[in-house]
Design a protein around this nucleic acid. Sequence first.
DNA 1: TTAGAAGTGTGACAACAGTCACTGACTAGT
DNA 2: ACTAGTCAGTGACTGTTGTCACACTTCTAA
Lengths: 208, 208
Amino acid sequence: MIELFENTFEPELLEEFNSKAKRVSVKEGDIILDFGQTVRVIPIVLSGTLKISRLDDAGKELLLYYVSAKESCAMTFTCCMQQFPSEVKATAEEDTEFLALPITAMDEWMMTFPTWKSFVMRTIRTRFNELLRSIDQLAFQKLDERLIHYLKEKSKTTGSALINLSHEQIANEMASSREVISRLLKRLENENKLLLYRNQIKLLPGFC
Amino acid sequence: MIELFENTFEPELLEEFNSKAKRVSVKEGDIILDFGQTVRVIPIVLSGTLKISRLDDAGKELLLYYVSAKESCAMTFTCCMQQFPSEVKATAEEDTEFLALPITAMDEWMMTFPTWKSFVMRTIRTRFNELLRSIDQLAFQKLDERLIHYLKEKSKTTGSALINLSHEQIANEMASSREVISRLLKRLENENKLLLYRNQIKLLPGFC
DNA sequence: TTAGAAGTGTGACAACAGTCACTGACTAGT
DNA sequence: ACTAGTCAGTGACTGTTGTCACACTTCTAA
């Protein structure tokens, strides 16, 4: 729904959306954009969540950040404007709908619509800060603190204290290994911070 | 010298530089912008190098990237446009001269000068990629590989195989500890990849 | 219903990085 | 020339993370 953006963008820009943007639906797990692919459109999420992650040569993965409703991905802005291949992978974290904006329009709009320009700059700033926070975690924090942070984030984006993931999936997204995550989760369970089930983790109120 | 940018920006923009930019000289070690300070100007380096780094609560440091001649720092673009405090620290790596552009001008120029807009977007993309590479290093590589990468980068920015740093300084910039760096350097020396002196490291031709 | 797959729990061990303690070498300033 | 401070080397130890091996449970599909 274009109405979602009524308070964000001026009417003329919303009309541009209407005439130039395509609406795309993807299912949970679909890969929107893989590492190395050329960016062809700019996604703005309407509903659902996209997951942006980084891969290493060995195929290990690391979650960078989520793109939720009304948000977009900063990397596509800068990549697409000079037709560079993507440095990251974008996956649908759940069933997701997004607007696909043509990259040519993106460039014009920067010059003509102030709200678009500030949306772009705001998005870039936010993502920069998220990358910095990732770097903080990796450089300065241990795995148990990273895990707690990860679970909190997951819970925040889904809006639920129930997390439906296997230990293996968590390990992948954190570029760690299953056994280690299992052990740390068990410890958190013993500390009464969460409950473990098969494919599911329940964060308890005292989870900090 | 404004001539440095003759091929980068249109003449009208260079005139803007002349009338609105201040020229600033700083000495090696000077702090241009500290963590948490408000960004007041946008620096474009004329000569020398700025070092951009991240701090944790305990005061540990982590080098993010260098800003060399004709370059600028992406974070200041996005921070200044909405008057946010800096998330990083900028230090003069050596004696450095830079243009200080007023942040108000920055915003206008995005709309009026295409070369400025693409300079901004190119800078943002480059810095994004450097942050991603930092993340790669931290998530997927061991300290010895990170150290090799660090030394290579250092050598590249200074254009010399001689690196004038104590082990302690290196440890700080890599958010590690002196003894560990000493040990790894010793191992690299035994592998004939470099020579160690007091406050100096010489990379040998076979350094890969 | 049953075989196989997927998920979890754990012990044992290795590798790596951080810390502590101490030594000795070099350097700058008085 | 002496002293205090900085820098580097190293052994011993600890805690964290990754890996291997294996047991056990739960789910799924034939």
